[in-house]
Amino acid sequence: MDKWITKKAFINLLKNHQSIMVGGFMTCGTPETLIDWVLESEVKDLTIICNDAGYPDQGVGKLIKARRVKKLIASHIGLNPYAGSQMSEDALDVTLVPQGTLAEQIRAHGAGLGGILTPTGRHTIVEEGKHVIRHNDQDYLLETAIGADLALIQIEACDRLGNAVYSKTARNFNPIMASAANTVVALTNHQRDSIDPECVVTPHIFIDYIVKEDTHGS
């Protein structure tokens, strides 16, 4: 099975109104080339799920600045003024989620769970409208699982099948997002003949398509 695709095949995966998870933490570990290709495509009204709103000219920030995003689910938007201003003018629907909750909501979806119980956010505005469940004399918020149509992740290297390893803190949300979307596209810096089976972080079965970083052909 050949998972290695080019720019043209990647753009064919994109649609208006899609929900897209994007790996990265303040754009460290964000697959910038794939974001650039989403920008080059005509798609709009996207729902983006990402740790943060990136910077105006980096990461998902580029999509927000270009007004291609309708809804953003993130833990932090402070480094991209376009996110704040579009939120104020009701052009962008922003849901702010505690970072650990977001990570676990994504992991839960990938693991077939409907949600998780977390103490984070109790007695704060995060609690508004949510079920509080008592267990072992402690209150927890029920936070439901989050999946997506598409996940765009950055990996450091993989073998032909897509067994993946990451680089340092560029790992962050990438492995969990790889488990939680209907279609997962990985941007890799290197293809290797083999990856030590003891060191594989994301098993190949999670990755549907792979783009090699220097593939600029059509």
Partner: peptide, 26 residues
């Protein structure tokens, strides 16, 4: 560029240090 702290600053890793994903981190 692949080694930053939670403030996005470039950092280094000490001997004995390690990396993990966001779900493990939280």
């Amino acid at each position: 560029k692949n080694l930053t702290n939670a403030g996005g600053q470039y950092v280094t890793l000490k001997q004995g240090g390690m990396y993990f994903d966001s779900a493990t981190s939280f």
